[in-house]
């Protein structure tokens, strides 16, 4: 085709650059404004984006659901995705979650999943299962951050672990951006990254609030003025 396929030139041009993930203190665009900008998505693209969101957003995942049911549900979502880029991006994200789930399970002293158990999603479940004792589950070449994540987990550095996970998800989403500037894939990858930036920004606010409260408590306990007018 002469013009390529650029159905969302206006939408993409109206979205601000997200910048680096870890430098984000507030998302580049609010959820309300993002929703407004995405109002003109074609209904089928909107449905794809919602399906992607439903599979990845913790708010929309039923945490009481069994692993097998979740794996079956996301397998359906991945299979229904209409284009290869989104399918690959979704698969990568779920594989990151699978690897983190394995790290946490092993850290809690859990045994390797049984053969045939639907415990995770993706191409590496069997490799992870058979290399359960290996520090990087034998997938360190594909997930270069896995040792860093393991170290953070073992050190009890939950904030550091979250940073590693979000950065890995951010990088994975960016991997498919080449060649997609103004199409639906570009929109979907932007939304995926925006959700990560939003999550990171929320963590930051939560951490700051907790730290502030702890400092206030410490100041009160020490009987020293907190510096804040009553």
């Amino acid at each position: 085709m002469i013009a390529g396929h650029d159905p969302y030139v206006m939408e993409m041009a109206s979205l601000p650059a997200l910048g680096p993930l870890l430098g984000t203190t507030t998302p580049a665009i609010s959820a309300t404004r993002l929703e407004e900008r995405l109002r003109n998505l074609a209904p089928e693209d909107r449905a794809d984006l919602d399906a992607l969101d439903a599979a990845l957003s913790w708010d929309r995942i039923d945490l009481g659901e069994s692993d097998a049911a979740f794996v079956a549900a996301v397998t359906k979502v991945v299979a229904r995705a209409r284009n290869d880029t989104l399918r690959a991006a979704l698969r990568d994200r779920l594989e990151i979650r699978t690897l983190i789930a394995a790290l946490r399970r092993r850290h809690r002293g859990g045994e390797a999943p049984a053969h045939g158990e639907a415990w995770g999603y993706g191409r590496f479940t069997e490799t992870i299962r058979t290399h359960w004792a290996a520090p990087d589950f034998g997938v360190g070449h594909s997930f270069v951050w896995v040792n860093k994540a393991r170290e953070r987990l073992e050190a009890g550095d939950t904030a550091g672990l979250e940073r590693v996970i979000l950065q890995a998800a951010w990088d994975a989403a960016g991997r498919y951006g080449d060649g997609h500037t103004f199409d639906f894939e570009a929109v979907a990858l932007y939304v995926l990254r925006w959700r990560l930036a939003d999550r990171w920004a929320r963590y930051d606010v939560a951490a700051a609030t907790t730290r502030f409260a702890a400092l206030l408590d410490a100041a009160r306990d020490a009987g020293q003025p907190s510096g804040i007018a009553p």
Binding site: A3, V9, E11, M12, A13, L15, R37, F182
Partner: peptide
């Protein structure tokens, strides 16, 4: 016509932002 329309849509999007 196609080129101006593509760039024009981007201009409108940028003006929104």
């Amino acid at each position: 016509a196609i080129g101006v329309s593509i760039a024009g849509q981007a201009a409108i999007g940028a003006m929104v932002e």
